[in-house]
């Protein structure tokens, strides 16, 4: 598969003016300004293949939005380069953006005062979309999101969910190969979230659109992302599909076994992390033994009353990834 996006060693830092406290600090600021350089992203490297759905996650302020903004041409990296469809974003901005769609959950590209259809019409002209493919796209979008009934509604009267639907359609009108979604589900109710996820899956399946989304929603991560890129403090921490990351961060499971008495048997491929009366917790590495085999072996030594398996939740995994091991 060809690479749709290539991120080559990019870094970005911001210049922030330090402000003093209170009236004294403010007065001081009038005379002298202290500038601080804050690195937002440093030495990021990764490629994204055509047709992938990549979840771009990390704690607040990790540099997710900065990276997405660099990929979509809004910010220029301080160093390094970004290629989309083989073209450098910095030097070929217009060609690159003709092929990408962008939705920011907290900001709309729709005209606030006018009916939704007017914003679409403007985009039709901006991206030079001919009438037939425009109408086809609206039809497709109507099947997925039911957009037609919203077209005559002024954007300022829309609910957040409706507005996000409008923004999704607006980003897809010119059939881009890549779609960036920056926290698209933020603040959405359950049915709007469902609609959004359905949208992402369907356009990915039907059109092969490459999708990069940032999110804090575990549901998005579990249901949508074939691959996760976790960044923290501007650096890449994990990269892979959900199972791989789980295996990497928590390569073990815990088997809880209840016996009929307090004589607890051992097994050479796992360690006992706790015993409490006739209940024992065994930790084993998934690569070394399966749970079924372990239960079978233990059952041969002592009669087992009950078993359960404890696994690190995705919640825990993500938290561990954020906080660092």
């Amino acid at each position: 598969m060809e690479n749709m996006i290539e991120i080559k060693n990019i870094s970005k830092s911001y210049h922030v003016v330090k402000k003093g406290e209170g009236i004294k600090g403010a007065l001081k600021g009038l005379v002298k300004k202290e500038v601080k350089v804050i690195p937002a992203v440093s030495n990021l490297n990764f490629n994204i293949k055509k047709g992938e759905i990549v979840g771009f996650i990390g704690p607040n302020g990790a540099g997710k939005s900065t990276t997405i903004k660099m990929m979509s041409g809004i910010l220029t990296p301080s160093s390094g380069e970004i290629l989309i469809g083989g073209k450098n974003v910095k030097t070929h901005r217009k060609e690159v953006v003709q092929n990408i769609g962008v939705v920011f959950g907290q900001r709309s590209q729709l005209n606030w005062d006018l009916r939704l259809g007017e914003s679409f019409e403007l985009l039709r002209h901006i991206y030079r979309i001919d009438k037939t493919s425009f109408d086809e796209m609206i039809d497709t979008m109507d099947e997925i999101l039911g957009i037609k009934e919203l077209q005559d509604k002024p954007v300022r009267q829309m609910s957040l969910g409706q507005r996000v639907k409008g923004d999704l359609v607006a980003a897809m009108l010119h059939s881009p190969d890549v779609l960036f979604l920056d926290e698209p589900t933020i603040g959405l109710d359950i049915s709007s979230k469902y609609a959004l996820r359905k949208f992402v899956k369907e356009i990915n399946e039907k059109r092969g659109t490459t999708i990069i989304l940032t999110t804090h929603d575990l549901g998005d991560i579990e249901q949508l992302c074939s691959r996760l890129i976790i960044i923290n403090n501007g650096k890449l921490v994990e990269d892979g599909n959900l199972e791989e990351i789980v295996d990497d961060i928590a390569p073990y499971k815990t088997l809880v076994v209840e016996y009929y008495d307090e004589q607890i048997p051992q097994h050479e491929k796992c360690e006992i992390i706790s015993t409490e009366g006739n209940v024992a917790k065994y930790r084993f590495f998934k690569k070394e033994i399966t749970a079924a085999k372990l239960i079978e072996d233990l059952g041969k030594q002592k009669a087992i009353k009950d078993v359960s398996i404890e696994e690190a939740s995705i919640d825990d995994i993500i938290r561990i990834a954020y906080e660092g091991r």
Binding site: K19, I23, A26, L27, G29, L30, K33
Partner: peptide, 11 residues
Amino acid sequence: KMQIIRSLTYK
């Protein structure tokens, strides 16, 4: 007081 600080901020 807050307002004074705010107005001083923009040199």
